[in-house]
Write a protein that binds this DNA or RNA. Structure first.
Length: 346
DNA sequence: CGATTTTGACCCGCGC
DNA sequence: GCGCGGGTCAAAATCG
């Protein structure tokens, strides 16, 4: 739009320029005509002998002065035209510059979380290895300080030597965490599903992650008196994403939410990373048209606190653990009718 | 009345 | 093969 306006403006300016020059040309012609007319008159007057010689000289001087004034005026108009043209060119240049910047900014936003996770992955491994060195020093109180932890679980149930893989076993990714391996699970991995486990202090039955969920089952898991609830994503029909919600046995205030699957739809406004990070990077689901579905913590980047590193209940060596301490809910978070807002205690 | 939750039944993989 | 346990289904109940 800016270009159109600018071009129109430029075109108008050109027209004005041309008109101006044309106008001045006409003026010149008129002046010339006037001058020639005067000359004719003068000729006549000459014919009428030298009776009016003094008045003729004054008129010529006046005409010259007028001509000079018009010339100066024309120069001024030309200067103004040049100045305006430069201004339009500069505006156009700025516009093009910004236009070129926009996709870069957009792309940068999309890459933010991935880069963040990759960076924190290596960082987290450092912390966890340090923590494991400490071994038994790890006290439950440290775990109780947990604000919100996010762990990508990649179960490796079957041995690599096994050629026949049971369908049930294919449901989880089987890869040992390697910090050199990007946390980017390509879509070529097909039917494999990774799990993202989120631990958060939450007094309500379930934490609000921006998505809509429908409860389809509840079970009391062995060893945990708290029932495990099963939810299915209902944002879009046929969305395969499911989540399990269960209270932590050690600290009932901690809610363990495990997401599984990949959303087949753009995430709603305010959907948090937890809801979007299931199995694959949320960016795989994003395209240029779903800017609104971007995880909310792009506006509120999570704050990492090394004291918050914890070990999930069923953690093993094949799981990567990331602990995020969110600075609170983003302003864009929406609360669904069936879900209460997560009680952010951090 | 449609959407959601509850809850018992059912399915299936795994270990013994 | 059997039992256990995790996960899912589906009908009934409930809610807004």
């Amino acid at each position: 739009m800016g270009i159109d306006l600018s071009l129109k403006f430029e075109a108008e300016e050109k027209e004005n320029d041309e008109e101006g020059s044309k106008h001045s040309f006409e003026k010149k012609e008129e002046e010339d005509e006037d001058a020639s007319g005067h000359q004719d008159e003068q000729m006549k007057e000459n014919k009428d002998k030298d009776s009016c010689l003094g008045s003729r000289t004054r008129e010529e001087e006046n005409e010259r002065e007028e001509f000079l004034q018009l010339q100066i005026e024309m120069e001024n108009v030309k200067e103004e035209n040049t100045r305006l043209r430069k201004l339009v060119e500069k505006t156009l240049q700025d516009y093009r510059h910004l236009e070129m910047k926009f996709p870069v900014i957009d792309q940068t936003k999309k890459m933010d979380l991935e880069a963040f996770l990759r960076a924190q992955g290596s960082w987290c491994m450092d912390i966890t290895s340090q923590a494991r060195k400490r071994g038994a020093e790890r006290s439950p109180s440290v775990e109780r300080e947990l604000g919100l932890s996010l762990s990508i679980q990649k179960k490796q149930k079957q041995e690599e030597s096994k050629e026949v893989v049971q369908p049930h076993q294919q449901r989880y990714n089987s890869c040992i965490l390697d910090t050199n391996v990007p946390r980017f699970i390509s879509s070529s991995q097909g039917n494999r599903k990774a799990r993202v486990s989120v631990r958060a202090r939450c007094e309500t039955a379930t934490m609000n992650d921006g998505c809509q969920w429908r409860k389809y089952g509840q079970k009391t898991a062995k060893g945990n008196p708290c029932p495990r609830a099963y939810y299915r994503c209902t944002v879009a029909p046929g969305c395969p994403v499911r989540k399990q919600v269960q209270r932590c046995l050690e600290d009932m205030s901690i809610l363990i939410t495990t997401y599984e699957g990949t959303h087949n739809h753009p995430l709603p406004v305010g959907a948090t990373a937890m809801a979007s990070t299931t199995s694959t990077s949320p960016f795989l689901l994003l395209d240029s048209s779903d800017n609104l579905s971007r995880p909310s913590y792009f506006q509120n980047p999570p704050i990492i606190d090394s004291s918050l590193i914890t070990y999930p209940q069923n953690s093993n060596n094949n799981q990567s653990i990331r602990s995020f301490n969110f600075d609170g809910p983003s302003k864009g978070d929406h609360v669904s009718s069936s879900q209460n807002r997560l009680n952010w205690m951090m």
